[in-house]
Each structure stands twice: as structure tokens, then as C-alpha cells.
């Protein structure tokens, strides 16, 4: 498995985790808890964005690694 396809898997895992965090950010009853999940949502979002950009760059620079 190439690095890019591994990276894609990691991204998929992160995105599903982000989805779960999003439900918690919405349905938690405590203000404090909601805020924490909201922050986590933002952090994971930023990480996902950064990884996606990195992925595009790798694929652009080294097309031979283009995963599926």
C-alpha cells in the first residue's frame, strides 16, 4: 500500500470521528461539554484540511504515488 492510500484511510477515519464529535457537540446537555466538543470539532476540521492539502500536493508532485 502506498503512502497516499494509507493517508486516505487515515483521513477517512478522522472524518468519521469528526462526524461523531459533531453529534456530541449538538446533543450534549452541558454547556461546558458542548464547548469542548465544538472546539474539538474545529481542531479535527483543521487537521483534516491540512492533511487533504498535503495529499493533493503529494499527488501533484509525485503522480507515481497516486493511490486509489
Amino acid at each position: 500500500m502506498t503512502v497516499t492510500s494509507q493517508l486516505k484511510q487515515t483521513l477517512a477515519g478522522l472524518k468519521s470521528a469528526q462526524g461523531t464529535i459533531r453529534t456530541y457537540a449538538l446533543q450534549s446537555q452541558e454547556e461546558e461539554l458542548r464547548n469542548i466538543f465544538q472546539e474539538s470539532l474545529e481542531t479535527t476540521g483543521e487537521i483534516i484540511d491540512s492533511l487533504e492539502n498535503r495529499l493533493k500536493k503529494i499527488e501533484f508532485e509525485e503522480p507515481q504515488y497516486k493511490g486509489n
Binding site: Q6, Q9, T10, G13, L14, A17
Partner: peptide, 16 residues
């Protein structure tokens, strides 16, 4: 599960 998934992603990133 959520914690485990995040931990897994973290481990994979460290691997990269």
C-alpha cells in the same frame, strides 16, 4: 469508540 478512532488516526499520523 470515538477515542479509539482518534487514537488510531494519531498513531497513523505519527507513523507517516
Amino acid at each position: 469508540m470515538l477515542y479509539a478512532n482518534l487514537e488510531k488516526a494519531q498513531a497513523e499520523l505519527s507513523g507517516f
